[in-house]
Amino acid sequence: MRTGKLAMDKVNQILVKTFKISSEEAQKNLTMNDVSRWDSITHMDLIVSIEDEFQVRLSGDDIAEMITFDAIRATLTKYIS
């Protein structure tokens, strides 16, 4: 189980790969409405990538909250800490 910076770097890489954004943008707190490629397809890809990478199963409630980059990082911290 990865924690701290290493895990967050991995999350940022997933954000870059999923939304085709720069690593600088991935570090900001962008929302679903800020990222043009954040639609239902990429959202699903994002959740699956996170679950695969961190070997976690996110709850429906948590997934529903994951609509900003900061919320994604906060939720994941809860699972891996």
């Binding site: 699903m44 959740i47 699956v48 996110l58 997934i63 529903a64």
Partner: peptide, 12 residues
């Protein structure tokens, strides 16, 4: 179907 798959995968 994608809409329903999306909702299922997000456990909604």
């Amino acid at each position: 179907p994608s809409m329903l798959v999306y909702a299922l995968k997000l456990r909604a």
